[in-house]
Measured scan of single mutants.
Amino acid sequence: TFTSIVTTNPDFGGFEFYVEAGQQFDDSAYEEAYGVSVPSAVVEEMNAKAAQLKDGEWLNVSHE
């Protein structure tokens, strides 16, 4: 299960995956970082959410 939350205070020191406002979700980078295949429906969902981000916001993507 993939989830996401919007934050204005990303923790770059941890093992977190963020999408910056104005960027798209990079499923290849996510797969490389976590060894998890990302279904195309999830990629579309995360890109739709990322498109709604305002300046200074980040989308924190995770999975269980």
Rank of each mutant, 00 (worst) to 15 (best):
T1R: 13
T1G: 12
T1W: 12
T1C: 14
F2Q: 02
F2Y: 11
F2M: 02
F2W: 15
F2T: 02
T3K: 10
T3H: 14
T3C: 13
S4W: 15
S4A: 13
S4N: 02
S4T: 08
I5M: 13
I5T: 14
I5F: 15
I5V: 13
I5S: 13
I5D: 06
V6L: 06
V6I: 12
V6Q: 02
V6H: 03
V6E: 03
V6R: 00
T7F: 03
T7L: 07
T7D: 04
T7P: 00
T7E: 05
T7Y: 03
T8N: 09
T8E: 07
T8L: 10
T8Q: 10
N9W: 08
N9T: 13
N9L: 09
N9Y: 08
P10A: 04
P10R: 06
P10H: 06
P10L: 03
P10W: 01
D11P: 05
D11I: 13
D11E: 09
D11Y: 10
D11N: 14
F12K: 07
F12H: 10
F12D: 04
G13K: 10
G13E: 13
G13M: 11
G13P: 06
G13F: 09
G14T: 11
G14H: 08
G14M: 08
G14D: 07
G14S: 14
F15Y: 13
F15C: 15
F15V: 12
F15W: 10
E16P: 06
E16H: 15
F17D: 01
F17E: 01
F17R: 00
F17T: 04
Y18L: 08
Y18G: 01
Y18A: 01
Y18M: 03
Y18Q: 07
Y18R: 04
V19T: 05
V19K: 00
V19P: 01
V19S: 00
E20A: 14
E20F: 08
E20G: 15
E20T: 09
E20P: 14
A21K: 10
A21S: 09
A21I: 05
G22H: 07
G22E: 04
G22W: 05
G22C: 07
G22V: 00
G22K: 05
G22L: 05
Q23N: 09
Q23E: 09
Q23P: 01
Q23A: 13
Q23G: 14
Q23H: 14
Q24V: 12
Q24W: 12
Q24R: 13
Q24C: 11
Q24Y: 12
Q24P: 10
F25Q: 02
F25K: 01
F25N: 00
F25M: 07
F25S: 02
F25V: 01
D26R: 05
D26Y: 05
D26A: 04
D27T: 15
D27S: 15
D27Q: 15
D27R: 15
D27Y: 15
D27K: 15
S28R: 15
S28T: 13
S28A: 14
S28N: 13
A29R: 10
A29W: 07
A29E: 07
Y30C: 04
Y30W: 07
Y30L: 02
E31Q: 13
E31C: 10
E31H: 11
E31F: 15
E31K: 13
E31I: 07
E31G: 08
E31Y: 15
E32V: 11
E32S: 13
E32P: 02
E32G: 08
E32Q: 14
E32A: 15
E32D: 10
A33E: 07
A33K: 15
A33P: 03
A33N: 09
A33S: 08
A33M: 15
A33T: 12
A33R: 15
A33G: 03
A33D: 04
Y34D: 04
Y34R: 06
Y34I: 03
Y34F: 14
Y34P: 01
Y34V: 04
G35Y: 04
G35E: 05
V36A: 04
V36N: 02
V36P: 03
V36M: 08
V36F: 07
S37M: 11
S37K: 15
S37W: 10
V38T: 03
V38E: 01
V38S: 03
V38G: 02
V38M: 05
P39C: 07
P39H: 02
P39R: 00
S40D: 10
S40C: 13
S40I: 11
S40H: 13
A41Y: 14
A41T: 11
A41G: 09
A41F: 13
V42P: 00
V42S: 02
V42I: 11
V43P: 00
V43G: 04
V43R: 09
V43N: 05
V43W: 06
E44C: 10
E44Q: 11
E44T: 09
E44R: 09
E44M: 10
E44W: 07
E44K: 11
E45V: 09
E45H: 06
E45C: 10
M46H: 02
M46G: 01
M46S: 02
M46V: 09
M46F: 09
M46N: 03
M46P: 02
N47P: 04
N47L: 03
N47W: 03
A48E: 13
A48L: 13
A48K: 13
A48F: 13
A48V: 10
A48D: 14
K49N: 09
K49W: 09
K49H: 11
K49P: 08
K49G: 07
K49M: 14
K49L: 15
A50T: 06
A50V: 08
A50Y: 01
A50K: 00
A50Q: 03
A50G: 03
A51D: 08
A51I: 06
A51M: 11
Q52P: 00
Q52S: 12
Q52G: 10
Q52K: 09
L53V: 00
L53D: 04
L53K: 00
K54D: 05
K54E: 08
K54Q: 10
K54Y: 04
K54I: 08
K54C: 07
D55E: 14
D55Q: 14
D55A: 14
D55M: 08
D55S: 11
D55K: 14
D55P: 15
G56M: 04
G56V: 02
G56S: 04
G56I: 02
G56E: 04
G56Y: 04
E57N: 03
E57L: 01
E57G: 02
E57D: 04
W58A: 00
W58C: 05
W58G: 05
L59Y: 00
L59K: 00
L59A: 01
L59D: 02
L59M: 06
N60G: 14
N60L: 15
N60I: 15
N60W: 15
N60C: 15
N60T: 12
V61S: 01
S62P: 05
S62C: 11
H63D: 02
H63F: 11
H63I: 06
H63W: 11
H63K: 01
H63Q: 04
H63T: 04
E64C: 13
E64T: 15
E64S: 14
E64L: 14
E64G: 12
E64P: 08
